[in-house]
């Protein structure tokens, strides 16, 4: 065994359950004795990704692969896709509807936060087909984060 693997179904219809995957993973990482700073980064990045799957893409599947030196997160959905990834990554850019904004989301800070809290991040998206976000957080330093 070299990795532990967990999958989480993200229900795109039940907003009140968004965040379950990140809080469940957080408990596991704590039991594994992962440093607090790493847990913090992973749970913030994953939570934002999870919320995006619910708000912008009707849910999907999260896969976590963890080895002693790194945590890989793969967030795959079959939602509407992101037409311009570079634009979506900009702080403050959001297509969130007013009703979502009234709940305090839609500041356009999710993707920038995910970028900030992960050591590596990559987005693949096709309009009308879906989006997959790959994020990696290293446990004991790992290779240095490349400039954004």
């Amino acid at each position: 065994m070299s990795v532990l693997k967990w999958t989480y179904e993200v229900d795109g219809t039940d907003f009140t359950r968004a965040g379950e995957a990140s809080s469940n993973l957080k408990k596991k990482l704590r039991a594994l004795g992962i440093p607090a700073e790493v847990i913090r980064k992973v749970s913030i990045a994953l939570y934002e990704g999870e919320i995006n799957m619910v708000i912008h893409a009707d849910g999907g599947v999260i896969t976590i692969e963890m080895s002693p030196d790194r945590i890989d997160m793969i967030l795959a959905d079959h939602g509407k896709g992101i037409p311009d990834i570079e634009q979506a990554m900009q702080a403050g850019w959001s297509t969130a509807a007013d009703e979502v904004r009234s709940l305090g989301f839609g500041a356009g800070m999710g993707l920038p936060n995910m970028k900030k809290n992960s050591d590596e991040m990559r987005i693949e998206s096709t309009v009308g087909v879906g989006t997959t976000v790959y994020m990696t957080v290293y446990i004991n330093g790992g290779p240095k984060k490349a400039d954004a």
Partner: peptide, 19 residues
């Protein structure tokens, strides 16, 4: 911090135990 809830001192061992 007093990590009373963790499975093992060593991350690798802890992962085996978690499995």
């Amino acid at each position: 911090f007093v990590p009373v809830l963790k499975l093992d001192e060593n991350v690798w061992e802890a992962m085996m135990k978690m499995e």
